[in-house]
Computed example of a mutant assay.
Amino acid sequence: MTHPHKTIVFDLDGTLVDSLPDIISSFQYGFTSLGLPAPTDAEVRPLIGHPLEAMYAHFAPAHAASLCTVYREHYARNFVNRSRPYPGVVELLRTLRERGYRLAIATTKRTDMARRFVEALGLTPALDHVQGTDGFPHKPAPDVIHRALAALGTAEGLWMVGDTTHDVHAGKAAGLRTYAVTWGNHDAGTLATAAPDELQPDLGRLLEHLPPLPRA
């Protein structure tokens, strides 16, 4: 009998990686390049975590397709200008792997972009699977979490860790416990409306919930 691998699922942007400045600047670049007035940082930030097309449609529905094309070209060249893992993330992932857990990413980024991003930041060796959202319902639907777990074969999802209410709702819908971190896109008050199991300023408390697994 094959025992399920106990798996922790993480969002990427705003959860493991402080990437919002690069995302916002690339998002704004699209407007500038097409001669359109660009929204401010404060206007863009609440929309991060939604699909790119929906974000652009909010501001310029007639130009959304063109803006997406410009964004993807620009972001692919500038995605690690300022983006870095949050303090303690690399150590946390290493510790969880040492304790016997599988680690997966479930992000709204497209899979190809997410994997390039993770690789550029040097996080690929710390993760078992990187799952993006490719043509199926995005968070708060649980589809991306289900696909991440399915990709690992016999995977039992324990926690969904994220920085937005979309992550929390998706985790709950997938039957996982939810851990919301406040250093990303949604503040503590916003996150509290989704009633996560843990609401914390960083990822430190996650280790308290995940002791070393018994060796097979």
Rank of each mutant, 00 (worst) to 15 (best):
A42E: 15
R147M: 11
L149T: 00
P201W: 08
L96Y: 06
A151F: 04
D202F: 13
H166Q: 15
P51A: 11
G204I: 12
E91V: 08
Q200W: 13
I24H: 03
A192H: 04
A114Q: 02
I105E: 00
P140Y: 07
A54Q: 15
G171T: 08
H169K: 15
E208P: 06
N81V: 13
G49W: 01
G135L: 05
V70H: 14
D167A: 12
L12S: 03
H50T: 12
L199E: 08
D11G: 13
A126I: 06
D11P: 06
P137L: 10
R72Y: 09
R72Q: 14
P211Y: 05
R97I: 02
A174L: 11
F117H: 10
R177S: 15
L12Q: 03
L149D: 01
A65S: 14
G157Y: 00
L96D: 00
P125N: 06
V130F: 00
H74R: 14
P211E: 09
P137C: 12
L36G: 08
H63I: 05
A64Y: 00
H74V: 11
I24Y: 03
Y75C: 06
A188D: 11
L149R: 00
P39C: 05
A194M: 08
T133I: 03
L20K: 10
G184A: 11
T133M: 02
L36R: 09
Y86P: 04
F59L: 05
T190N: 07
P142G: 10
H209E: 14
R45D: 09
A180M: 12
G49Q: 02
D143M: 02
P39E: 04
A76P: 01
P61G: 09
T178A: 12
G35V: 06
G14R: 00
Y179D: 10
I145L: 13
H209W: 14
F10T: 03
A38T: 05
A148P: 03
A141G: 09
M55Y: 02
D197K: 09
A65D: 14
F31I: 01
Q200V: 12
T178Y: 06
L123C: 03
P212G: 05
Q131V: 08
E98I: 09
A38Y: 06
R115P: 02
T193Y: 03
D22Y: 00
E98M: 12
R94E: 15
R116E: 12
A150N: 12
L92K: 07
Y56Q: 01
L210D: 07
D187N: 15
F136C: 07
W159D: 06
D197A: 10
T111H: 01
F27Y: 13
G49C: 08
Y71D: 04
P51H: 07
R97C: 03
A76G: 14
G14W: 02
F136N: 08
E91M: 05
L52F: 09
A195E: 15
P21L: 05
G153Q: 06
A114D: 02
T190K: 14
A150M: 07
E208D: 15
G204T: 15
T178M: 11
V144L: 09
A188I: 07
A170F: 06
R94I: 11
P87Q: 10
P137T: 11
H146M: 05
E73A: 14
H138T: 13
G88C: 12
R72G: 04
L96P: 03
